[in-house]
Design a protein around this nucleic acid. Sequence first.
RNA 1: GCCGCGUUGGUCAAUCGGUUAAGACGCAUCCCUUUCACGGAUGAAUGACGGGUUCGAUUCCCGUACGCGGUACCA
Length: 508
Amino acid sequence: MSNKVRVRFAPSPTGGLHLGGVRTVLYNYLFARHHGGDFILRIEDTDSSRFVPGAEEYIMETLRWCGMEPDESPAVGGPCGPYRQSERKEGYREYADKLVAQGNAYYAFDTPEELEEMRSVFKTAENPSPQYDHRLRMKMRNSLTMGDDEVRRLLSEGMPYVIRIKMPDNETVSFTDMIRGEVSFNTSTVDDKVLLKNDGMPTYHLAVVVDDYLMNITHAFRGEEWLPSAPVHLLLWKYLGLQESMPQWAHLPLILKPDGNGKLSKRDGDRLGFPVFAMNWTDPRTTEFTQGFRERGFLPEAFVNMLAMLGWNDGSGQEIFSMQELIERFSMDRVHKGGAKFDFEKAKWFNHEWIKQASAERLLPDVKRVMESGGITVTDDRYLETVINMVKERCTLLGDFAEQAGFFFRTPVSHDIDSIRAKWNSDKENFFAEVQGVLKDLEDWSAPAIETAFKDLAVARGIKVGELQLPFRIMLVGGKFGPAVFDIAATVGKAETLTRIASMPSVV
RNA sequence: GCCGCGUUGGUCAAUCGGUUAAGACGCAUCCCUUUCACGGAUGAAUGACGGGUUCGAUUCCCGUACGCGGUACCA
C-alpha cells in the first residue's frame, strides 16, 4: 500500500486545455492505470491574477470526454484534499519558514521596481538577463545583507517580502529522469527562485514539492519546459528532509508546431486551420472563441489514440489502440526524447480509422446530433444505423455525415447536371421515363432486384448499363458520391426513388 | 549571453554495434469500381557535420552546427 503508484495532473486554470496538456494527462493516466495506481487532479491556482472563470470546469469536462476520470480531484474529493492550491494556502508557510530557519532560504524585501532596476543595471551584452543569484543576492535588500534587528523590524512593520531559496554555490545536482536518463545541473547557474510570494501564496516551486509530498505522489510527469527548474525542486526535497519520499521524474517532450519550429500554440491552430484545444473554448475576458477537437468532429477514442502516438509507440508498428490497449502497453521508457511536430492530416487519419471501425450503435448519438444540426430530424434510429454503415468509410470527421448521409433523408435540391450533360441523349431520357413504370411494378424492392430490372430494360433498349448509372446517381444523390446506386435506391424506398427520378430537372 | 534538453525521409517513427535502415501519414502511378470512398499493388523520399572507440557505427564517446526550452513575486 505504501508504494502504490500515485500520479497527478496539475494544470493551472488559465484557459482551454491544449494538445500538450491533454497528452500530459494521458501519459499520467496511462501510467497510473497500467500500474493499478491513483490518478489525481490538482488545480495549481497559486496566481490569483491569472485565474480564469470556467477554466477548471473546462479541464474536468475535457478529462470526462477523453475518458480519463481522476480518482481524486476538487470535484470528487479524496484523502489528500483540498485539491486546489489556493485552498491549501496556509499549509505552505511552515515549509518556507523551516527553510529560512535552516538557512536554506531567506527573506527578500526588494520591490518589483527594485528588481527591474537590478535587471537593467546589471544587464550586459554577455548577460542579457541577470538573475537574482549567488552573485547578486549580496547586493540586494534581503535578510542576508541586513542585520537581524533590521529584518525583525521590517517584518514587524509589515513590510512586504518574499522568501527565496538560497541556491548553494557550485554544487552538482543530478537525478535520473525516466525518459532522459541522468540529468545534472550546476547550482551556480540557477537563481534564487521565489518560494513564497508577498501575498502569502507559494510559487509553483514550493507548492509542487509540498503537495507532491503531502499527496504521496510517487511519479511526477510534466512538460520539458520544467526541466531547468528541476534542480530547485530537487534541493527543496532535500532541504525539507523529504528526499526519501521524492517522486521519480519524467519530463515529456514538447509538441511542436507543424511548420517551422517552436512549441505548438493556439495561434498556430488559428493560422493553419486546425484545433489545438480539446474542446471549444471562449475566453471570458476577451470573448475570443477557439474551436476544439471535439466540436471539429473528432471521436474521443481517436483524439486519445492520436495523442498517445505523438511521442510514444510500443515498438510493434501498431498504431490503432483503444484506451484499454494503451493502458496495457504503455511504458514511460518508450516515450521519445525529442519533440514531435503536430500533423493535422495524420490526426484526421486516426479519426477516419476510428469512424470506420466504430459500430453504427456507437456512432448513432454523434451522427444524430450532426444530422439534427443540419436540419434533419431523425425519427427512425434503425434507419440511421443502416445509413451509417453504408457511408461511414467516407467520413473523416463527424460533420462529414451531414453530406454523406443527408440525401438518405432529404430529396436532393441541387443536381450536378454538368457531369452528365455531355453524354446525355434522348435515348437516356426515354429510358428514365420508361424505367419509372418498371420500378413501380417491382414487387421485390431489394438492391439486386432493382439492379436486375434496371439492367434488363437497359439491355432491351440497347443502352450500356454503366452509362445510366451516373445519371441515376445524380437523380438519387444530387452529386457524384455515395454508396452503390442500387443500394441507395433500395434504402430510400420505392416511392422516394420514383419521386427523385421524376423530379430530376431537365438535363439539357 | 548563460544553463539544460534534443537531432533517422515533408511528418509520426522502428532499430537497444552487424538489416537491402521497418511501418504509418501525406504524395505519385496503377488495379478494383462507369460515382465518391474502402481495399490492394508499386514508387519517390531518411541517419545534421567532424573526430574518435571498435573487426564493424544510425546505434557508444567528444566537439561543432542547428533547433527547442528556461533564464518572472506565471505556471
